[in-house]
Design a protein around this nucleic acid. Structure first.
Length: 281
DNA sequence: TACTAACCTGTACG
DNA sequence: ACGTACAGGTTAG
């Protein structure tokens, strides 16, 4: 019933800056998600390498209610109308965490290349549907990797951050199960303690893999959106967002967009990227 | 506290 | 072909 009203648009969702290790072959998307490969045809009925059931498209969310709740002004409403099949994804936490550490100050294509090399170098190779895939490596594997091996994946100065982040997971300093159960602020504080994770990266990890739908990652694009459409609602002087300013702005944003602000962010982001003809294919 | 330079890789443009 | 501009967030000074 709901699915008839709100079918998932797989293309739009995969190409919305959330995931990086996805490729389309013969009308089916294949993506690495932790130690699994998901195959997703356009009807969004997943079949996966390890047959564990997993709600990647967050079908357990009440979309009708959420889309209704976030449609608080004509901007969001038109974005929802333009991309009604866009979804937030529920990603493997470790892969998401490393992916966004890698993403810091890098471009989409660079991020994709680097992550693919990391999988190829450190991840197990498996066969699925007559194709070979490299799964995402375990935390341990990255934590013990030699610096020059990571460097050769194109990480550059992010090498230290990636290694450090993996070590934090191995040591238990970062515990995804715990963070999932914690609220936004507790989980965020924990992530911010990791070298290489600032506000934006932390918010991406929280939104895309740790169930924090009130997270609202503020990158260049979202600042542009806020300035363009919401300058009357939010006070932003467009200089660098300091820790405190980011925090205050986030508070204002949740007050305005509500508990599903993360969904609003995804729709607004997608809309603005499309306006600027940015493709991720 | 607030601003700024430095960090690395890859692509686009002239 | 060659430089130069640009895309990107975090950290340290």
């Amino acid at each position: 019933m709901l699915k008839q009203t709100f079918p998932i648009n797989v293309d739009d969702t995969i190409n919305s800056g959330q995931v990086f290790l996805w490729e389309k072959h013969d009308k089916t998307w294949y993506g690495i998600n932790g130690n699994n490969v998901l195959a997703v045809p356009s009807n969004a009925e997943i079949f996966s390498y390890s047959k564990t059931a997993y709600n990647f498209f967050r079908n357990d969310d009440d979309f009708e209610r959420i889309l209704c709740d976030i449609s608080r002004d004509h901007i969001v409403r038109s974005a929802v109308k333009r991309f009604p099949g866009l979804r937030l994804l529920r990603q493997d936490p470790f892969q998401c965490y490393i992916s966004f550490v890698v993403s810091a100050n890098s471009s989409i294509q660079n991020i994709k290349n680097t992550l693919h090399k990391i999988c190829k170098k450190f991840g197990p190779k498996i066969r699925f549907n007559k194709n070979y895939f490299y799964l995402f490596p375990d935390p341990k594997k990255i934590a013990v990797a030699e610096k020059h091996e990571l460097l050769s994946c194109g990480l550059g100065y992010r090498t230290k951050a990636v290694k450090n982040a993996a070590e934090a997971v191995v040591s238990g300093e970062i515990d995804f199960d715990f963070l999932q159960k914690s609220n936004y602020h507790v989980a965020k504080e924990s992530l911010l303690n990791v070298f290489g994770i600032g506000n934006k990266v932390a918010d991406c990890i929280l939104l895309f893999s740790l169930e924090k739908l009130d997270s609202f990652p503020l990158d260049r694009w979202m600042l542009r959106v806020l300035q363009k459409y919401y300058s009357d609602k939010f006070e932003l002087n467009m200089k660098t967002l300091t820790e405190k300013r980011y925090e205050n702005l986030h508070k204002e944003i949740v007050k305005y967009f509500g508990p599903y602000a993360g969904y609003s962010q995804q729709f607004l982001f997608k809309m603005e990227r499309e306006l600027n003809q940015k493709k991720w294919l």
